[in-house]
């Protein structure tokens, strides 16, 4: 790059369109959304990885070669045609464990996601639409939930109430909605000053009607975009708890598998490697999807 000056490398970021009208790309219709995501390599990878986890999780019964909790071969067998990911100390098939682990992750992510969406959207909408004191109070609460250390709270809850999927989802859901609520609030705030909302208000529509019909449909995309990134973090958190042996004792999870691998690290690398790859892929998929959605919907990262 002999011809280019370093200074213009810095100015590079400006990427100013020389003519105002050239860069005017409007917001694409929703129908084409998926196509535009798939057009970027990162977006395509995000969609594929996320879909892969969903499909594997849904079809776990069909895809898993054996029952993940029942011995199916020699103990600590390295990956082979018979056991593609090897076996653990009890001779259980690791591939089956990873496949069923996808289902556990799926349940945790979807259930937590639903809870987060419910609380986050409600708080964010009320806060943004009502404004004033209600807004102040709700934002104080939201800030509080942002500083609450989720991981340690979850551990304490598990110690007091005993481990279980329902408790895990409840704790993760109750403590993860704060940033989403802020995103929704910001969106609702700007939407409620827009013309179509003013018009609805002028025509005498009730607040509920305005929120449900005019504001929510437009605020939700921002929430969904953010949800992808948020659930990636939830997935990592769940994996960490599983790794420490604090997950649901009746379910196979990726974190649990990696935790079991710790003792056999010297002799059986595959026990750690494959569950880790699965988690990394799933988290990467959600992150890429979230980034791609942000780019396509024209939001900020």
């Amino acid at each position: 790059m002999a011809g280019s000056t370093p200074a213009s490398a810095i100015a590079d970021a400006t990427d100013v369109a020389p003519v105002g009208r050239v860069g005017a790309l409007g917001r694409a219709p929703r129908r084409r959304l998926l196509r535009r995501i798939l057009q970027t390599p990162a977006g395509a990878a995000g969609v594929s990885l996320t879909l892969l986890v969903i499909v594997v999780g849904l079809l776990a019964d069909l895809l898993a070669p054996t029952d993940p909790l029942v011995p199916a071969g020699p103990p600590l067998a390295p990956p082979s045609p018979a056991h593609l990911m090897g076996t653990d100390a009890l001779g259980r098939d690791l591939l089956s464990g990873v496949v069923y682990g996808a289902r556990t992750s799926l349940v945790v992510v979807f259930a937590t996601g639903a809870l987060v969406l419910l609380i986050g959207v409600t708080v964010g909408t009320v806060s943004g639409y009502r404004g004033g004191r209600v807004d102040d109070a709700l934002m104080r609460v939201t800030e509080f939930f942002q500083v609450l250390p989720r991981f340690f709270l979850a551990i304490m809850a598990i110690a007091l109430f005993g481990p279980g999927l329902d408790l895990l989802v409840l704790v993760l859901g109750l403590t993860s909605w704060a940033t989403l609520a802020r995103v929704v609030r910001a969106e609702v705030l700007s939407l409620s000053q827009r013309e179509f909302v003013e018009a609805a208000r002028a025509s005498g529509a009730s607040d509920t009607r305005i929120v449900v019909l005019e504001i929510l449909p437009n605020a939700l995309p921002a929430a969904v975009v953010y949800l992808g990134l948020l659930l990636a973090q939830v997935l990592l958190l769940e994996a960490s708890l599983g790794f420490l042996g604090l997950g649901d004792p009746n379910l196979v999870s990726w974190g649990y598998l990696a935790g079991q691998a710790q003792r056999f690290l010297r002799v059986a690398w595959w026990l750690s490697f494959f569950p880790g790859v699965a988690i990394a892929f799933a988290v990467l998929g959600l992150n890429l999807l979230g980034d791609a959605l942000t780019d396509v919907l024209g939001g900020r990262r």
Binding site: S8, A9, A13
Partner: peptide, 17 residues
């Protein structure tokens, strides 16, 4: 957008590379 600013930015080497 007629290029009057771009001209001087080019002279100063301040165009996006």
């Amino acid at each position: 957008g007629c290029g009057k600013t771009v001209t001087v930015l080019a002279v100063l080497g301040l165009l996006p590379r």
